[in-house]
Computed example of a mutant assay.
Amino acid sequence: MNRKLLVCMAPLLLIAGCGGEETPDLPGDPVKGKLAITAYGCGSCHVIPEIPGANGHTGPSLARIAKRTYLAGVLPNTPEEMVRWIRAPEMVDPRTAMPNMAVSVGDAHDITAYLYTLR
């Protein structure tokens, strides 16, 4: 690459890299995750962006959940821990109000993939 072009592009390269956050490599499908969220009725307890009718207030809003440090106040916010929480919340916190909805492993991965789009 010629030096003049590199000098001109340097500010653009810096801007492109600023504020960029790594999205974890997720095995699920966010499109299927949106469908699973609806099928399991998650929106009856949670506000979930872009999910029609997801306006419940029993549980916390899931808006921007991908940017949170913790899940359920105790788990590090990683895809593995999110899947764990979705599948068996009572195993993480026996006193939780979140019910075990018998979410399959595949659906939990898809739901997690969708929730990680909520930045």
Rank of each mutant, 00 (worst) to 15 (best):
I111G: 11
E22M: 10
E80G: 01
R68Y: 14
C18Q: 12
S44G: 10
T58A: 11
A113G: 04
P24N: 04
G56N: 09
H57G: 07
N55K: 13
L115R: 07
V92I: 14
A113P: 01
G73K: 08
K34W: 06
N100A: 12
V31P: 08
V92T: 11
P99W: 10
G41P: 10
A10V: 11
R119D: 12
A63L: 00
H109N: 15
N2D: 15
K34T: 09
E81G: 02
R87Q: 14
E50H: 08
P11E: 01
A39M: 04
G41L: 09
L118M: 05
P27G: 11
E81S: 07
V105W: 10
V105I: 11
S104H: 04
E21C: 04
R3W: 08
M98K: 02
P11H: 02
L35H: 12
M91Y: 06
G33D: 02
L14E: 07
V103I: 15
I15E: 02
R84K: 04
V92A: 01
P79G: 03
T96P: 02
C45N: 05
T69M: 01
R3D: 10
C45E: 06
K32A: 15
V92K: 03
D25G: 07
G106A: 03
A39I: 01
E22R: 10
H109R: 10
K4V: 10
H46S: 09
P30D: 07
G28N: 02
M98Q: 13
A39S: 03
Y70T: 15
A16C: 14
G43S: 04
I86S: 08
D25A: 13
Y116T: 02
K34Q: 15
Y40T: 07
Y116C: 05
E80I: 02
A102K: 13
L5M: 15
V74W: 01
D29Q: 11
W85Q: 15
H57E: 06
T112V: 13
S44Y: 04
P79T: 07
A36R: 15
T69N: 01
E50P: 03
G41T: 09
E21L: 08
A10W: 09
Y40G: 14
I86G: 06
I65M: 03
A88D: 02
P30L: 06
H46R: 03
L26N: 01
G19Q: 13
A63M: 00
I15D: 06
P60Y: 12
E50R: 04
I86V: 11
K67D: 07
